[in-house]
Amino acid sequence: MTPFISLQGRRALITGGTSGAGAATVALFQVLGARVLTTARTKPTDFSGASFIEADLTTKTGVQSVVDAVQEEFGGLDILINVLGGSSAPSGGFAALSDEEWDKEFALNFFPAVRLDRALIPSMLDQGTGVVIHVTSIQNRLPLPEATTGYASAKAALNTYSKSLSKEVSPKGVRVVRVSPGWIADRGTNGLALRIAEQAGITYDEAVQMIMNSLGGIPLGRPAAPEEVADLIAFLASDRAASITGTEHVIDGGTVPTA
Results as ranks from 00 to 15, higher is better:
T2E: 05
P3K: 09
P3H: 05
S6V: 11
L7T: 06
Q8M: 07
L13A: 06
L13R: 05
I14F: 04
T15F: 11
G20A: 04
A21E: 03
A21D: 04
G22K: 00
A23I: 03
A24G: 02
Q30H: 11
V31N: 07
A34S: 07
T42N: 15
P44E: 13
D46L: 08
S48V: 11
S51D: 12
L57T: 06
T58V: 10
G62K: 11
S65M: 11
V66A: 05
V67L: 11
E72L: 14
F74L: 03
G75V: 14
G75Y: 15
I79Y: 07
L80I: 07
I81M: 13
L84A: 14
S88M: 05
P90V: 13
P90C: 14
S91I: 02
A95E: 15
A96T: 10
L97H: 08
D99K: 07
D99A: 13
D103K: 15
K104R: 15
E105A: 14
F106I: 09
P112M: 08
P112T: 13
A113S: 12
R115A: 15
D117H: 04
A119I: 05
L120Q: 00
D126C: 00
G128Q: 01
V131A: 08
H134P: 06
I138F: 11
Q139F: 12
L142Y: 00
E146K: 02
T148A: 13
T148M: 06
T149E: 06
S164F: 01
V169E: 04
P171F: 15
V174I: 04
V176Y: 15
V177Y: 15
V179P: 05
V179R: 08
S180Q: 14
A185S: 14
R195I: 05
A200H: 10
I202C: 00
M212Q: 07
N213L: 04
N213C: 01
G221V: 04
D231Y: 15
F235D: 02
A237V: 09
S243W: 02
E248N: 13
I251W: 14
I251V: 15
T255M: 09
A259Q: 06
